[in-house]
Protein backbone atom coordinates (compact mmCIF):
# COMPACT_ATOMS: atom_id res chain seq x y z
CA UNK A 1 0.00 0.00 0.00
CA UNK A 2 2.61 2.39 1.12
CA UNK A 3 4.80 1.45 -1.83
CA UNK A 4 1.97 2.19 -4.22
CA UNK A 5 1.42 5.54 -2.64
CA UNK A 6 5.05 6.56 -2.93
CA UNK A 7 5.01 5.36 -6.49
CA UNK A 8 1.96 7.45 -7.29
CA UNK A 9 3.55 10.35 -5.41
CA UNK A 10 6.67 9.96 -7.53
CA UNK A 11 4.67 9.99 -10.72
CA UNK A 12 2.76 13.01 -9.49
CA UNK A 13 6.03 14.76 -8.70
CA UNK A 14 7.42 13.92 -12.14
CA UNK A 15 4.33 15.42 -13.77
CA UNK A 16 4.72 18.59 -11.70
CA UNK A 17 8.32 18.88 -12.85
CA UNK A 18 7.48 18.14 -16.49
CA UNK A 19 4.63 20.67 -16.58
CA UNK A 20 6.78 23.36 -14.96
CA UNK A 21 9.64 22.67 -17.38
CA UNK A 22 7.31 22.78 -20.40
CA UNK A 23 5.85 26.08 -19.26
CA UNK A 24 9.25 27.61 -18.43
CA UNK A 25 11.29 26.54 -21.45
CA UNK A 26 9.67 28.73 -24.17
CA UNK A 27 10.28 31.83 -22.04
CA UNK A 28 14.01 31.08 -22.00
CA UNK A 29 14.55 30.53 -25.74
CA UNK A 30 15.50 34.16 -26.45
CA UNK A 31 17.88 33.99 -23.49
CA UNK A 32 19.44 30.89 -25.03
CA UNK A 33 20.34 32.86 -28.15
CA UNK A 34 21.52 35.86 -26.19
CA UNK A 35 23.46 33.99 -23.51
CA UNK A 36 25.15 31.68 -25.98
CA UNK A 37 26.28 34.63 -28.00
CA UNK A 38 27.44 36.65 -24.99
CA UNK A 39 28.74 33.56 -23.18
CA UNK A 40 30.79 32.45 -26.18
CA UNK A 41 32.12 35.99 -26.49
CA UNK A 42 33.03 36.01 -22.82
CA UNK A 43 34.71 32.58 -23.04
CA UNK A 44 36.68 33.65 -26.12
CA UNK A 45 37.66 36.88 -24.35
CA UNK A 46 39.02 34.90 -21.38
CA UNK A 47 40.73 32.50 -23.77
CA UNK A 48 42.58 35.24 -25.64
CA UNK A 49 43.39 36.96 -22.31
CA UNK A 50 45.37 33.84 -21.41
CA UNK A 51 43.01 31.99 -19.07
CA UNK A 52 42.10 28.31 -19.44
CA UNK A 53 38.46 27.31 -19.91
CA UNK A 54 38.25 26.46 -16.18
CA UNK A 55 38.02 30.17 -15.43
CA UNK A 56 34.92 31.07 -17.49
CA UNK A 57 33.40 27.71 -16.52
CA UNK A 58 33.76 28.15 -12.75
CA UNK A 59 33.02 31.88 -12.84
CA UNK A 60 29.79 31.34 -14.76
CA UNK A 61 28.71 28.89 -12.07
CA UNK A 62 29.71 30.95 -9.03
CA UNK A 63 29.32 34.60 -10.08
CA UNK A 64 26.60 34.28 -12.75
CA UNK A 65 26.37 38.00 -13.45
CA UNK A 66 27.38 38.60 -17.05
CA UNK A 67 28.70 42.15 -17.07
CA UNK A 68 30.55 41.57 -13.81
CA UNK A 69 32.31 38.52 -15.24
CA UNK A 70 33.66 40.62 -18.10
CA UNK A 71 34.92 43.15 -15.55
CA UNK A 72 36.50 40.35 -13.49
CA UNK A 73 38.76 39.49 -16.43
CA UNK A 74 40.22 43.00 -16.11
CA UNK A 75 40.50 42.64 -12.34
CA UNK A 76 42.43 39.38 -12.76
CA UNK A 77 44.78 40.99 -15.27
CA UNK A 78 45.47 43.98 -12.99
CA UNK A 79 47.23 44.26 -9.63
CA UNK A 80 45.88 42.25 -6.68
CA UNK A 81 43.31 44.44 -4.88
CA UNK A 82 40.51 42.44 -3.23
CA UNK A 83 38.78 45.47 -1.69
CA UNK A 84 38.57 47.21 -5.04
CA UNK A 85 37.16 44.00 -6.50
CA UNK A 86 34.46 43.95 -3.82
CA UNK A 87 33.63 47.65 -4.20
CA UNK A 88 33.33 47.42 -7.98
CA UNK A 89 31.11 44.36 -7.69
CA UNK A 90 28.79 46.13 -5.26
CA UNK A 91 28.55 49.13 -7.61
CA UNK A 92 27.99 47.22 -10.83
CA UNK A 93 25.54 44.78 -9.27
CA UNK A 94 23.65 47.30 -7.12
CA UNK A 95 20.67 46.95 -9.49
CA UNK A 96 20.09 43.49 -7.95
CA UNK A 97 18.90 45.32 -4.81
CA UNK A 98 16.02 46.68 -6.90
CA UNK A 99 15.22 43.22 -8.21
CA UNK A 100 15.28 41.81 -4.68
CA UNK A 101 12.86 44.44 -3.40
CA UNK A 102 10.49 43.66 -6.29
CA UNK A 103 10.79 39.92 -5.66
CA UNK A 104 10.21 39.97 -1.88
CA UNK A 105 6.82 38.38 -2.51
CA UNK A 106 7.58 35.92 -5.32
CA UNK A 107 10.89 34.53 -4.05
CA UNK A 108 9.44 33.49 -0.73
CA UNK A 109 7.55 30.49 0.51
CA UNK A 110 9.13 28.11 -2.00
CA UNK A 111 11.36 26.43 0.61
CA UNK A 112 14.94 25.62 -0.42
CA UNK A 113 14.16 26.80 -3.95
CA UNK A 114 14.21 30.41 -2.72
CA UNK A 115 17.94 30.17 -1.98
CA UNK A 116 18.72 29.16 -5.56
CA UNK A 117 16.23 31.64 -7.06
CA UNK A 118 17.87 34.52 -5.19
CA UNK A 119 21.39 33.26 -5.93
CA UNK A 120 20.58 33.04 -9.66
CA UNK A 121 18.70 36.36 -9.92
CA UNK A 122 20.36 37.80 -13.04
CA UNK A 123 18.65 40.52 -15.14
CA UNK A 124 17.02 38.00 -17.45
CA UNK A 125 15.77 35.53 -14.82
CA UNK A 126 14.37 38.40 -12.78
CA UNK A 127 12.60 39.89 -15.80
CA UNK A 128 10.98 36.61 -16.84
CA UNK A 129 10.00 35.52 -13.36
CA UNK A 130 8.58 38.94 -12.56
CA UNK A 131 6.45 39.33 -15.70
CA UNK A 132 5.62 35.76 -16.84
CA UNK A 133 2.03 34.71 -16.44
CA UNK A 134 2.44 31.23 -15.08
CA UNK A 135 -0.40 29.00 -16.37
CA UNK A 136 -3.00 27.69 -13.93
CA UNK A 137 -1.95 24.41 -12.36
CA UNK A 138 1.77 24.86 -12.96
CA UNK A 139 3.93 24.88 -9.83
CA UNK A 140 5.22 28.46 -9.43
CA UNK A 141 8.35 27.51 -7.51
CA UNK A 142 9.47 24.93 -10.05
CA UNK A 143 8.59 27.22 -12.97
CA UNK A 144 10.86 29.94 -11.60
CA UNK A 145 13.61 27.43 -10.72
CA UNK A 146 13.57 26.07 -14.29
CA UNK A 147 13.74 29.58 -15.77
CA UNK A 148 16.73 30.38 -13.56
CA UNK A 149 18.41 27.00 -14.06
CA UNK A 150 18.00 26.99 -17.85
CA UNK A 151 19.36 30.52 -18.06
CA UNK A 152 22.37 29.61 -15.95
CA UNK A 153 22.91 26.48 -18.02
CA UNK A 154 22.93 28.53 -21.27
CA UNK A 155 25.41 30.97 -19.81
CA UNK A 156 27.58 28.19 -18.33
CA UNK A 157 27.69 26.11 -21.52
CA UNK A 158 28.25 29.13 -23.76
CA UNK A 159 31.12 30.54 -21.75
CA UNK A 160 32.75 27.12 -21.27
CA UNK A 161 32.58 26.34 -24.99
CA UNK A 162 33.91 29.80 -25.76
CA UNK A 163 36.79 29.13 -23.39
CA UNK A 164 37.57 25.77 -25.02
CA UNK A 165 37.10 26.54 -28.70
CA UNK A 166 37.91 30.23 -28.36
CA UNK A 167 39.85 30.95 -31.46
CA UNK A 168 38.06 28.54 -33.83
CA UNK A 169 34.69 30.26 -34.26
CA UNK A 170 34.15 32.18 -37.50
CA UNK A 171 30.69 33.09 -38.75
CA UNK A 172 28.95 36.34 -39.15
CA UNK A 173 27.14 36.87 -35.88
CA UNK A 174 27.27 40.65 -36.10
CA UNK A 175 24.15 42.11 -34.59
CA UNK A 176 23.03 38.94 -32.79
CA UNK A 177 23.59 40.68 -29.46
CA UNK A 178 20.50 42.78 -30.29
CA UNK A 179 18.47 39.81 -29.04
CA UNK A 180 18.97 41.12 -25.49
CA UNK A 181 17.76 44.61 -26.41
CA UNK A 182 14.76 43.14 -28.20
CA UNK A 183 13.95 41.04 -25.16
CA UNK A 184 14.03 43.96 -22.76
CA UNK A 185 11.93 46.05 -25.16
CA UNK A 186 9.30 43.29 -25.21
CA UNK A 187 9.36 42.95 -21.43
CA UNK A 188 9.06 46.71 -21.03
CA UNK A 189 6.13 46.70 -23.46
CA UNK A 190 4.41 43.79 -21.67
CA UNK A 191 4.70 45.64 -18.38
CA UNK A 192 3.40 48.80 -20.09
CA UNK A 193 0.33 47.00 -21.45
CA UNK A 194 -0.36 45.48 -18.05
CA UNK A 195 -0.22 48.63 -15.93
CA UNK A 196 -2.76 51.44 -15.68
CA UNK A 197 -0.37 54.28 -14.89
CA UNK A 198 2.82 54.74 -16.88
CA UNK A 199 4.49 57.33 -14.63
CA UNK A 200 7.06 54.85 -13.35
CA UNK A 201 7.89 53.41 -16.78
CA UNK A 202 8.29 56.88 -18.28
CA UNK A 203 10.37 58.04 -15.31
CA UNK A 204 12.65 55.02 -15.79
CA UNK A 205 13.29 55.77 -19.47
CA UNK A 206 13.51 59.54 -19.07
CA UNK A 207 15.80 59.58 -16.04
CA UNK A 208 18.11 56.91 -17.51
CA UNK A 209 18.43 58.87 -20.75
CA UNK A 210 19.20 62.09 -18.89
CA UNK A 211 21.81 60.34 -16.75
CA UNK A 212 23.29 58.68 -19.84
CA UNK A 213 23.74 62.11 -21.41
CA UNK A 214 25.12 63.61 -18.21
CA UNK A 215 27.43 60.83 -17.00
CA UNK A 216 28.24 58.82 -20.14
CA UNK A 217 27.76 55.10 -20.88
CA UNK A 218 30.21 53.80 -18.26
CA UNK A 219 28.94 55.68 -15.22
CA UNK A 220 25.24 56.35 -15.64
CA UNK A 221 23.71 53.32 -13.91
CA UNK A 222 24.29 54.32 -10.28
CA UNK A 223 23.12 57.97 -10.69
CA UNK A 224 20.10 56.67 -12.64
CA UNK A 225 19.20 54.37 -9.78
CA UNK A 226 19.42 57.09 -7.18
CA UNK A 227 17.41 59.49 -9.35
CA UNK A 228 14.75 56.83 -10.04
CA UNK A 229 14.54 56.00 -6.34
CA UNK A 230 14.22 59.69 -5.44
CA UNK A 231 11.61 60.42 -8.09
CA UNK A 232 9.48 57.40 -7.24
CA UNK A 233 9.68 58.29 -3.56
CA UNK A 234 8.48 61.84 -4.28
CA UNK A 235 5.72 60.50 -6.53
CA UNK A 236 4.77 57.94 -3.91
CA UNK A 237 2.55 60.14 -1.78
CA UNK A 238 0.02 61.26 -4.44
CA UNK A 239 0.02 57.80 -6.07
CA UNK A 240 -0.84 56.08 -2.81
CA UNK A 241 -3.56 58.60 -2.06
CA UNK A 242 -4.88 57.91 -5.55
CA UNK A 243 -4.94 54.18 -4.93
CA UNK A 244 -6.83 54.40 -1.63
CA UNK A 245 -9.46 56.75 -3.02
CA UNK A 246 -10.08 54.23 -5.79
CA UNK A 247 -10.75 51.63 -3.13
CA UNK A 248 -8.20 49.15 -4.46
CA UNK A 249 -5.16 50.50 -2.65
CA UNK A 250 -2.97 47.68 -1.41
Amino acid sequence: MEGEQTCAGGREQKKVLRDAFKAAFPHTIPIFAGFWFLGLTYGIYMNVSGFSFWYPMLMSLTIFAGSMEFVTVNLLLGAFDPLQALAMTLMINARHLFYGISMLGKYRGNGWKDIYLIFGMCDESFSINYTAEIPEGVDRGWFMVFVTLLNQFYWFSGSTLGGIFGSLIHFNTEGLDFVMTAMFVVIFLEQWLKEKRHVSALAGIGISLLCLLAFGPEHFIIPSMFAILGTLTLLGKPMEADGSSGGGGR
Partner: peptide, 22 residues
Protein backbone atom coordinates in the same frame (compact mmCIF):
# COMPACT_ATOMS: atom_id res chain seq x y z
CA UNK B 1 9.37 49.11 0.50
CA UNK B 2 6.17 47.41 -0.69
CA UNK B 3 5.36 50.53 -2.70
CA UNK B 4 8.84 50.43 -4.26
CA UNK B 5 8.45 46.74 -5.03
CA UNK B 6 5.33 47.62 -7.00
CA UNK B 7 6.56 50.65 -8.95
CA UNK B 8 10.28 49.89 -9.38
CA UNK B 9 10.03 47.13 -12.02
CA UNK B 10 8.54 49.39 -14.72
CA UNK B 11 11.28 51.95 -14.14
CA UNK B 12 13.98 49.27 -14.01
CA UNK B 13 12.84 47.72 -17.31
CA UNK B 14 13.09 51.21 -18.79
CA UNK B 15 16.59 51.52 -17.36
CA UNK B 16 17.55 48.12 -18.81
CA UNK B 17 16.38 49.15 -22.29
CA UNK B 18 18.47 52.32 -22.07
CA UNK B 19 21.36 50.24 -20.69
CA UNK B 20 21.26 47.96 -23.76
CA UNK B 21 21.44 51.02 -26.01
CA UNK B 22 24.07 52.90 -24.00
Amino acid sequence: IRYLGKVLPSAVFGLLVVYCLK
